[in-house]
Amino acid sequence: MNLNQTVVLSPEVISQEVSGETVLLDLNSENYFGLDEVGTRIWQLIQETGELQAVYDTLLAEYEVAPEQLLQDLEKLLTDIQAAGLVTINPGQP
């Protein structure tokens, strides 16, 4: 994963936070996708900036996690929500 990439939320996705977790609804497919507390924080940061480096840096500062583990977890979530059509990941500079 390239941290210089940007993430754009699909305009067809509605999100609602419920008790610290987020439920996403894709209006095109009518599928729901649930995010836990950390996934919710990632979603919030994507909404705020869309810049993966900023998302990564903020999460690294907020959570006690090894940098490599955070990178793996972030990549996994982004792969999942991109495959579900909830976001588009734009290529960044290498």
Rank of each mutant, 00 (worst) to 15 (best):
Y32H: 12
V55A: 03
V55G: 02
K76L: 06
L77M: 11
I42G: 01
T58L: 04
L25G: 02
Q44C: 05
N28R: 15
G39T: 06
L70Q: 05
E51P: 01
L52R: 09
L60A: 08
L25R: 04
Y32G: 03
L59C: 00
G34S: 13
A61M: 07
S19N: 13
T40G: 11
I42N: 03
I42R: 06
A61I: 02
L60Y: 05
W43T: 01
Q53T: 06
E48I: 09
Q82G: 00
D57L: 10
D26A: 08
E62Y: 02
S19A: 14
T22P: 07
D26Y: 02
F33T: 08
I46M: 13
T40I: 10
S19E: 14
L78Y: 03
Y56K: 08
V23C: 10
E62T: 05
G50Y: 02
E62Q: 14
T79D: 13
T40F: 13
V38G: 03
L77W: 06
P67Y: 08
L45N: 03
A54V: 12
G20S: 09
T49C: 07
S19Y: 10
Q53P: 00
A66K: 11
T79R: 13
E75C: 03
L77F: 04
L35S: 12
L35K: 12
E37N: 07
D36E: 11
L71E: 13
L59P: 01
A66E: 15
Q47I: 04
E30F: 14
D26N: 15
E68L: 11
L25A: 01
A54W: 02
E68R: 13
D36W: 06
L24F: 06
S29A: 08
L24E: 05
Y32L: 15
G50H: 04
Y56L: 03
I81T: 07
D57A: 15
A83N: 08
L70F: 05
F33I: 06
T22V: 13
S19M: 09
Q69H: 04
G34A: 11
D57K: 11
Y32M: 09
E62D: 14
G50A: 02
D73A: 11
L45H: 07
E62M: 02
E48Q: 13
E68C: 00
L70E: 03
D80T: 03
D80C: 00
L24M: 08
V38F: 14
D57C: 02
T22L: 07
L71G: 00
D36R: 09
N28M: 09
V38R: 15
V18C: 02
D57M: 04
T49E: 11
L27S: 11
D73Q: 14
A66S: 08
Q53N: 08
T22A: 06
L78N: 07
I46F: 06
E21C: 12
E62W: 08
T40P: 11
L60G: 01
L25D: 02
G39Q: 09
Y63I: 13
L60Q: 12
V65D: 00
L27R: 15
F33E: 06
E51C: 10
Q82M: 07
D26V: 03
E37W: 01
E30L: 15
T22K: 03
T40C: 12
G34K: 14
N31W: 09
